[in-house]
Design a protein around this nucleic acid. Sequence first.
DNA 1: TGCTAAGCGGAACAATGCTCCGTATAGTTA
DNA 2: TAACTATACGGAGCATTGTTCCGCTTAGCA
Lengths: 211, 211
Amino acid sequence: MPASQHGEVPASGADIESAVPRKRADARRNEQTLLAAAAAVFVTDGVDAPVRDIAKAAGVGMGTIYRHFPTRADLIIAVYRHQVEACADAGPALLASSATPYAALRQWVDMFVDFLVTKHGLAGTLQSGDTRSGPLHAYFLDRLRPVVAALVEAAAAAGQIRGDVDPFGFLYAVGNLCAGDTSNPHYDARAMVHLLVAGLAARPQAQPAGG
Amino acid sequence: MPASQHGEVPASGADIESAVPRKRADARRNEQTLLAAAAAVFVTDGVDAPVRDIAKAAGVGMGTIYRHFPTRADLIIAVYRHQVEACADAGPALLASSATPYAALRQWVDMFVDFLVTKHGLAGTLQSGDTRSGPLHAYFLDRLRPVVAALVEAAAAAGQIRGDVDPFGFLYAVGNLCAGDTSNPHYDARAMVHLLVAGLAARPQAQPAGG
DNA sequence: TGCTAAGCGGAACAATGCTCCGTATAGTTA
DNA sequence: TAACTATACGGAGCATTGTTCCGCTTAGCA
């Protein structure tokens, strides 16, 4: 199957001639500089740092950023791509190594939450439905939804969680729970996600939904 | 007791002389016009509508908006104050009328979620930790936290939910779950909140929290 | 060494929250 | 009724931020 094959991306498809004529050396150098600078700025100022600050940190102009990364969201994707891929790969691995599918699901969620919570503002950018964040939103969800779906379906098949859980909605919900003021000492995103995951395993009972 | 006494606000404290010298007639008229216009714009364009649009809809200038409402957030608070107060009042009422505290909690959460979900963008504005939304954030949380705390504590005392639930965090979490792209047909905020509430009632089990 | 396409920097544009200040007027007083 | 002043108003303007545009520079090649 045409799986992910991420990791090193030397010259983005060097085999297919004519398609990508190989970038100029300074361009490749700048791309790496930008990724490093962006990662550093994201750590100190959060993912919401202005594009200008990143350009300044990298010592390049605005135009250079936007030639390499069409939008802010694309830059964010590029910076975190490796970690997202690692999360995606961890799903099947946990499913294979854990005692039960539900245990795998819990571990996977813990890993994902750790990722989101430590990247200040990332979860927020992920959820905001504005046009600009579109690509980021789509990338995360497209990449991770199948992984979550496999975990959820396995746990449901094993009878460990209810069978009516929408994987997409669940993933989105976990992201939402990690959004907002992450530095707020009074809000413990991990605890709330644990509650949500516990709810997954609870036997569905008649909800007095008044609406 | 100096309770809320919201609803009509004739001259904001007519008894205390000198403190508030009673606004001019045109000012009072404009404030009402603004509230109505803002409410209408929020319904059609969402809570994130630009201040300029609201000014235009009300037929006033920017200055007029900002004299009446120091920030965007204050305007939003004013528009939804009645509904927030209604939510706050519903807490004790449900606790008194419901069969069990947990049932009251569930019903209250349903009511709150209905409120948030139908006001496009409100939950998002609520959570975003930026300075501008500060007042809104603070108002909602300060007003509703005690209500949720009473519900949660009653349910915990009755042994219906776990005892280690932080009311603040729970309220914040519900708000978060309602944030994001509410119009996304693939995301059902109500269902996710139900999951969270179900997790409240689940017996705490050893979480393999790796951290 | 010279040429050209690829790449670069940063000014400029658009959107948006908010401030400032000159002008208009409600309410009062003579 | 006329004059006066505190109050209120309108909207231009400022600051921030994502994004685009375009003239200048330079890597890579002949």
